[in-house]
C-alpha cells in the first residue's frame, strides 16, 4: 500500500461518460487501419470533436472527418463547419452525391425517403468506400430511439454496409472486438451511453462551440399552424397567400433546411436551452396537455445526419 489514506470521490456522471468515450476512440485509433469520424455539424458532432481532441491531446486526433453534404444544409451550418474544423486543424473530407443533385434530386420532387436515400445513405456508403475506411465513428446515442436500445457500441457491418441486429457480438466489459475481414467494417458509437441531456450539459461545462441555429433568434419562416418552415431553397415555395414571417425561434436538431422544422423559443443560451428541455419534461410530468411536435419531445426521435 502507499502508506497514506486517500478517499477518492466517485467520478461524476459526465466525467465517467467522457472517460468511456475517450477509451473507445483510442481503441478505434489503435486497432483499425483507416478509421474516419463522421461529422454532421450538429451538437453531438461537436461533442465528438471535443472528446477526440481530449483523447489524443497534445497530438491532433489521428483520423479525418467525413461530412456527407446533401447540398441542402443550412448556409450557417456550412460556414460553421468550415470555420470550426479549420480552427482546430482537423482534416475535413466533404462528400456530395453531385450527380444526384445535378439530376435535380430534392425532397419536394422525390419525397424525403428517396431524397435521403440518394443524398445521405448512398453518399455515405460511397464516401466510406472511396476513402477505404474500415471504421467509422458516429455520434448516435441509444436514447434517441427505443429501437436503438440494443445497438452495440461497435456495430458490425458486412461487405455491403448492412447491419444484422439478430447477429450482434456480445459486448463485455470495455473489451471491444474490432476484428473484421477485408471489405467488412465497423461503425462505432462512442456516445452510446449519453442522453440528450448529458450532451447539452457537456456542451455547457466544456463551452463547446455549436451552430448558432440552435439558439433563439428572429428568423424568416413560413408559418403553417405550429410548424415553422425555414425558407432557404428555391423549391420551398410559399402556398398561395403565404408570406415568410419573422419569428423568434430556434432549431432543435439540424439537418437539411427543407426538412428541419424550427420551434418558437426564447432560449438564446445553452442554460436556457437546457431549461427549455427540462420544462418540456416538467409539463409532461404534471400531465398537462401540451401542444408540441408529436414527433419528438426532447428530440428523442430526431434523426440527425445519417445514423
Amino acid at each position: 500500500m502507499l502508506g497514506y489514506y486517500l478517499m477518492l470521490p466517485r467520478l461524476g456522471h459526465l466525467r465517467t461518460l467522457e472517460a468511456e468515450s475517450m477509451h473507445i476512440m483510442r481503441e478505434v485509433a489503435s486497432e483499425f487501419q483507416r478509421p474516419v469520424m463522421l461529422y454532421s455539424i450538429g451538437k453531438d458532432s461537436s461533442v465528438m470533436l471535443r472528446l477526440a481532441q481530449k483523447a489524443f491531446y497534445p497530438a491532433p486526433f489521428p483520423f479525418p472527418l467525413l461530412h456527407i453534404d446533401t447540398g441542402y444544409k443550412f448556409r450557417e451550418m456550412i460556414t460553421f463547419r468550415d470555420e470550426y474544423t479549420a480552427s482546430i486543424k482537423a482534416n475535413l473530407i466533404v462528400h456530395k452525391n453531385q450527380q444526384a443533385l445535378d439530376n435535380g434530386t430534392n425532397p419536394v420532387e422525390l419525397g424525403t425517403a428517396r431524397c435521403c436515400g440518394l443524398l445521405k445513405t448512398k453518399s455515405l456508403l460511397d464516401g466510406l468506400r472511396e476513402g477505404g475506411f474500415d471504421a467509422a465513428l458516429g455520434g448516435a446515442r441509444r436514447d434517441e430511439e427505443r429501437s436503438r436500445a440494443k445497438e452495440r457500441i461497435y456495430s458490425f457491418r458486412d461487405a455491403r454496409g448492412q447491419w444484422d441486429p439478430k447477429n450482434q457480438r456480445p459486448e463485455l466489459w470495455n473489451l471491444y472486438n474490432g476484428r473484421v475481414d477485408p471489405g467488412e467494417s465497423i461503425r462505432i458509437f462512442p456516445l452510446s451511453n449519453w442522453t440528450e441531456m448529458d450532451v447539452w450539459h457537456y456542451i455547457h461545462i466544456e463551452r463547446i462551440p455549436i451552430v448558432p441555429l440552435y439558439f433563439a433568434a428572429e428568423r424568416s419562416m413560413l408559418v403553417r399552424g405550429e410548424t415553422l418552415i425555414p425558407v432557404e431553397q428555391p423549391f420551398m415555395k410559399p402556398m398561395p397567400g403565404e408570406k415568410p414571417e419573422l419569428v423568434r425561434c430556434r432549431m432543435r436538431s439540424l439537418g437539411c433546411s427543407p426538412c428541419t422544422g424550427a420551434i418558437r423559443s426564447d432560449a438564446d443560451t445553452v442554460p436556457k436551452i437546457i431549461e427549455e428541455l427540462v420544462s418540456f419534461r416538467r409539463s409532461e410530468r404534471e400531465n398537462r396537455v401540451i401542444d408540441h411536435d408529436q414527433e419528438g419531445s426532447m428530440e428523442i426521435k430526431k434523426r440527425e445526419g445519417y445514423f
Binding site: 436556457k272 431549461e275 409539463s283 398537462r288 401542444d291
Partner: peptide, 12 residues
C-alpha cells in the same frame, strides 16, 4: 397559443 404550457423560466 403558447407552444408549451410551462411555469416561468428560471434565470440563467
Amino acid at each position: 397559443m403558447p407552444l408549451v404550457t410551462r411555469t416561468a423560466l428560471r434565470t440563467d
